[in-house]
Amino acid sequence: MIAALRSGMMGGRLSGLLLVALPVALLIWLVLWPVLQAMVGTVYFPGTGFSTASYAYFFTDDYSLRNLWLTLWVTALTSVLRVTVAMPIALYLRFRTGSVAALVQALALFPMFVPSVLVAYAFIRVLGPNGIVDTVLVALHLPKLASPYLTPAGPIIGLVWDGLPLTLLLLLSGLGRVSIASVDAARDLGAGSFTLFTRIILPRIQSSIIVTLAFNVLGLFSAFTLPFLLGPASPEMMGPYMQRTFSDNADPLNATTQAVITFAFCAAFGLIYVRAIAKGRKGPA
């Protein structure tokens, strides 16, 4: 009996490994190995030895630094904007029920269903030159707006729009841990909305906000499609910059260097985010 059990377990172990072998192999071949290769390959060159020339170039090249700076502030601003826009909606949805709330939720989550190419296209038709906003302004005999299209404001607006649902869901799952009774209890004792938010709600969702910001930074730092289609050509964000370096300039070494630099800038956020999801979903029991 025991022997049978043990052989069953051994079978389980072996078949378990076999079943995960293919995805793991793919992961190693196409993710872990390339990352390692990128890190080593940009500083060690067979035959010539160690050199950090490509990094030195990046950090002395004025254009690269301007791109990095643009990426940093657009990422920071967009993450904060996403949280600022999503927070009131999340608070409303947490503490209200009813058909209006259901509609608000459906609308706020809607961008999840819209691919980013369509976001870019619709953006141009609305906020681009002679877009619908201009049309309306002209009809009202008002001056046209300076279009955000092809300025840093373009990708920022597009990325906030695109990222609203996930930010909202992350905040909502954090707010789920704030029980309505605990908020009622504070109201009962005389806490106003501001006190409620700062003293009761905020301390409970601090960690969710940090995770939400980390998740946003990871997604934004190397965003490609929206910055490419809506943003300025120069300076450009790291995503388009890497793409141009790799494809148009056919310069994989510098493109990889840029990639490693984005890894480095995101490392802390990556750690925060992965720790949070590993803890949250625990993975296999």
């Binding site: 009774a181 605990s182 009622d184 209890a185 009962d188 301390p203």
Partner: peptide, 20 residues
Amino acid sequence: LPPERRPTAMVFQSHALWSH
């Protein structure tokens, strides 16, 4: 009148303590 302006105080079923 809102809760804080009534001379009442409520004890809730559970989870109503502020864990922080």
